[in-house]
Amino acid sequence: MAEYFDYKVITSSLIKAVRTLTNYPCIEANSTGDQPPYPFATFSITSPKITIQHDDDNAPFELTVSLTWHDTSSLSVLNLAKKCESYFKSSVGRALFAEKEVVIVDVTDFDRRDNFISIEYERSAGFDVLMRVQDPYSDAVTPIDQIEINNIGGFK
Rank of each mutant, 00 (worst) to 15 (best):
P36T: 02
K49I: 10
Q53Y: 07
E62N: 13
S66F: 07
D56F: 14
L67D: 08
E28L: 08
K82L: 13
K83W: 04
I45H: 05
E62V: 06
S74Q: 14
I52Y: 10
F61V: 04
S66Q: 11
L80M: 12
S73P: 11
D34G: 11
E62D: 11
I45C: 02
Y38H: 08
S74W: 13
L78E: 14
S31C: 00
D57A: 10
F43V: 07
I27A: 00
F43I: 08
D55C: 02
N30I: 00
P37G: 04
F43Q: 02
H54W: 09
E28R: 12
E85Q: 11
S47V: 08
S47D: 07
V65L: 02
F61L: 05
T68K: 11
L78V: 13
I50A: 00
I45W: 04
D56R: 13
T42K: 07
S73A: 12
T64E: 12
H70G: 00
K49F: 07
Q35K: 14
A81G: 03
T46Y: 08
D55H: 06
L67P: 10
T68Y: 05
A81W: 04
N79P: 11
A41D: 00
E62M: 12
N79Y: 13
T72S: 09
L80E: 03
I27Q: 01
P37F: 08
T72D: 09
D55K: 13
D56L: 13
N58S: 09
S66T: 10
T51R: 12
Q35G: 03
K49L: 10
H70M: 05
S74T: 15
N30W: 09
F43Y: 15
W69C: 06
K82V: 07
H54T: 09
T51P: 07
D56A: 08
P37T: 09
P48W: 07
T32H: 14
T72P: 02
A29P: 05
T42H: 08
E85W: 06
H70A: 01
Q53T: 05
N30F: 12
E28F: 00
Q35W: 09
V65C: 04
T46H: 10
V77R: 04
N30R: 08
S44R: 12
S47F: 01
D55N: 11
E85N: 10
S44V: 03
S73Q: 13
H54K: 11
P36S: 01
K82C: 10
P48M: 00
I50V: 04
V65H: 05
D56M: 12
L80A: 05
I27R: 01
H70P: 04
I52E: 06
E85P: 02
H70I: 01
L78R: 14
A81R: 00
S66E: 08
Y38D: 09
I50D: 00
S47G: 00
N30S: 06
D34P: 12
P36R: 02
A81I: 04
T64M: 10
T68I: 14
Q53L: 11
K83H: 09
P60C: 00
K83V: 08
T42A: 10
F43K: 07
T32F: 14
V77S: 02
P39K: 05
T32V: 13
S76E: 15
Q35T: 13
N58D: 04
T46A: 10
